[in-house]
């Protein structure tokens, strides 16, 4: 197992290198530079600015000096916000996005698992359809529609919850978490429904029933554990997806998270911030995919022996 993890980590290095290289040159070739604005920048001023940001160096040497700094863990200063380093910005944005992501996953698990199990008990019934439809709202409606709708209902009509912010006013974390969680609830519901359907037809469930165990014990104790296996395997990629896809939620609710930094950086041509976020998120995605592989291998005895033997 350790060797498996180590070799996967080693393989991650060339992957990261490719991601970095592609992004680096992609953003440099985007039309418009970091200092372009409504007012044309005087050429002499532009020269001074480029010198301060090392943009006057040849592109390749900029690339290698970026890699050099990266190895030392220095992502450089932000282009758009000169007083701030990219490390600092990521440090400020990531915990918030991560918190949002964790709550969203919890919401997704709660809604998705309930709906999935509920509908698996009686497939193709009205109950199945209704619970699956509810769970699927998040993937049948763009988040930039669901978010404002929830705000309108709970923030403006009912005045129960704040309309924006994160950790600012009490209760302001509820709506963003629900909105983001709704997207993933659908997948969780789908997976747990499928998982449960499969498990419920297995021999050992029949055995358990034959032994005369109460049905809810059979389902909750035996069925649920195995039925949730695909959900667990899904959590890693889901969390990684949430981290890079939380932009819409962060924008609608004006949350100061990493997703918002990232997309705004792309629009601002904040070269260093784009690179920093890319490296950081790509690393996270790789790690989470690895974690979820390890976890599902660990939970699945058949695969575990395979890995152990490698």
């Amino acid at each position: 197992m350790l060797r498996f993890i180590l070799s996967r980590l080693l393989q991650a290095i060339p992957v990261l290198l490719v991601v970095i290289t592609v992004t680096f040159f992609l953003v440099r070739f985007a039309p418009g530079g970091p200092f372009d604005g409504e007012r044309k920048v005087d050429p002499s001023v532009l020269k001074a600015l480029e010198a301060q940001y090392n943009l006057d160096q040849p592109l390749m040497s900029q690339y290698f000096s970026f890699l050099g700094d990266l190895v030392q863990g220095d992502l450089g200063p932000s282009f758009k916000y000169p007083g701030r380093s990219v490390n600092e910005l990521i440090g400020a944005g990531f915990p918030i996005t991560a918190e949002l992501g964790i709550y969203a996953i919890l919401v997704a698990l709660l809604i998705g698992a309930i709906a999935g199990v509920f509908s698996a008990l009686k497939p193709n019934s009205a109950r199945d359809y209704i619970s699956m439809s509810t769970a699927m709202i998040g993937i049948c409606m763009p988040a930039f529609l669901l978010g404002p709708l929830l705000i309108l209902i709970f923030g403006i009509w009912l005045e129960w919850l704040p309309v924006s912010g994160w950790g600012d006013l009490p209760g302001d974390k509820i709506l963003p978490s629900v909105t983001l969680g709704a997207v993933y609830a659908a997948y969780v519901a789908r997976l747990s429904r499928g998982g449960m359907l499969e498990v419920l037809s297995q021999d050992y469930i029949r055995t358990a029933r034959a032994k005369g165990l109460p049905e809810h014990v059979v389902i909750l104790k035996h069925g649920l554990r195995a039925g949730m296996l695909p959900v667990v395997a899904y959590l890693g990629p889901a969390f990684a997806g949430i981290l890079s896809g939380s932009f819409v939620i962060e924008s609608v609710f004006q949350i100061q998270g990493l997703g918002r930094f990232y997309v705004l950086a792309a629009f601002n041509r904040d070269y260093t911030l784009i690179m920093g976020c890319t490296v950081f998120l790509a690393t996270l995605i790789i790690v989470f995919n690895l974690l979820s592989d390890v976890l599902s291998a660990y939970l699945n005895p058949r695969l575990r022996s395979q890995l152990g033997g490698k």
Binding site: Q11, V15, V19, T23, A30, S244, V263, A266, I286
Partner: peptide
């Protein structure tokens, strides 16, 4: 491995960048 590489790209941003770069 190539598929893994592209998987590791943050998708949304990748598309945003593409759209920005190439019009």
């Amino acid at each position: 491995r190539l598929v893994d590489i592209i998987y590791a790209l943050p998708f949304m941003i990748f598309i945003v960048l593409l759209m920005v770069v190439f019009g």
